[in-house]
Structures are given as C-alpha cells and as structure tokens.
C-alpha cells in the first residue's frame, strides 16, 4: 500500500507516494530519476548505492524510503552545483581514477563522507583505503582512486593551515 512521503534530496523537497517496501535506492532511481546512484548487490557489500544520509555515507539498498522522511539525503548529483564539478570530482579526473565508471558515483559519495569527517586533518593513506573499503571497484586496483582522495584531503589540510 502506498503512503505519502516527503523526501529532502540534494536540497530539494519532494512529495511522493511510495509503498512500505520501497528502498531509498528505488525511490531515488525510479521516482526521482536520480540514476547516478547505482543498483547492484542489494546486500550492502559493493557500495555503488552509497548516498549521504544527514551527511554520512550509507547503503541506500538496505534503507527503506520511509525511514528517511525528514532527513537530508545527498546523492552524487548533489555533490556539485549544476554545470560544475566538486573539487573531489576534479581530483578523480586529474588522477585518472575512473575506468568503467560504474562504481564512481558510490566511490565519490563514500570519499566525500570520509573527507567531511576528516575535517581538514592530515590524511593517512591506510586510513583512506580503510574509509573506502565498503565500496568496490573491479577495474582500477584502487591506486588512482586513493591518489585522488588523498590529494583532495591534502588540499583541504593545506587550506586549513592557510586559514590559521
């Protein structure tokens, strides 16, 4: 049975009617057309469905849409303003971190959550690898992805020192 649901996604409020079993992933893709969030394992193993829920990375495949009423959801489409790229997205391009691209939306969102939590502290390469362990890439071997995230973390760290 469908029930009304208000979802706040990427700063926009949406009034939806969805059934109780609808996952956040399906609501984003099927109801809102936000297909940057990918659908794959449905068991929180691969991370391609990662979105930010109140700023923290979560697997949207195991969240029910109705659980997310009144919370702030950010998808990969919301990382940058329309027509531009976020610094993290630019770092991925600069470091050649993208091959087939399927994991990249989830990887960007996972990395953004880590950078936000890092809050300008100096990054540690092992910590970066640990932070993205829940998001799988089967093309790149991760080196360039880790390079990109580390570079962005270093930039944020330098910016914090400059602000002092």
């Amino acid at each position: 049975m469908k029930a009304p649901l208000t979802l706040d996604v990427n700063g926009m409020r949406h009034e939806l009617e969805v059934s109780g079993e609808t996952t956040l992933l399906d609501a984003l893709r099927e109801e809102l057309g936000l297909t940057g969030t990918k659908k794959n394992c449905l068991e929180a193993e691969c991370g391609v469905c990662t979105v930010l829920l109140d700023g923290k990375a979560v697997n949207s495949c195991i969240l029910l849409a109705h659980q997310c009423e009144g919370r702030n959801i950010t998808t990969v489409e919301g990382l940058a303003r329309p027509g531009s790229l976020s610094p993290l997205q630019q770092a991925f391009i600069q470091h050649g971190a993208v091959q087939c691209g399927f994991c990249i939306p989830g990887m960007l969102v996972t990395a953004q959550s880590y950078l936000d939590e890092l809050d300008g502290r100096a990054p540690d390469r092992d910590e970066v690898r640990e932070a993205i362990a829940g998001t799988l890439c089967r093309c790149t071997g991760y080196s360039k992805i880790v390079d990109a995230i580390e570079a962005e973390a270093l930039r944020l760290n330098a910016a914090r020192w400059e602000a002092c």
Binding site: A44, G47, T50, A57, V58, N59, T110, Y114, I132, G134
Partner: peptide
C-alpha cells in the same frame, strides 16, 4: 564491522 556505510547504520 562492515564498511563505513554499514558502520554508520
């Protein structure tokens, strides 16, 4: 426990 996403939940 799991990856960062799972630990947030």
């Amino acid at each position: 426990v799991g990856g960062a996403q799972v630990r947030h939940m």
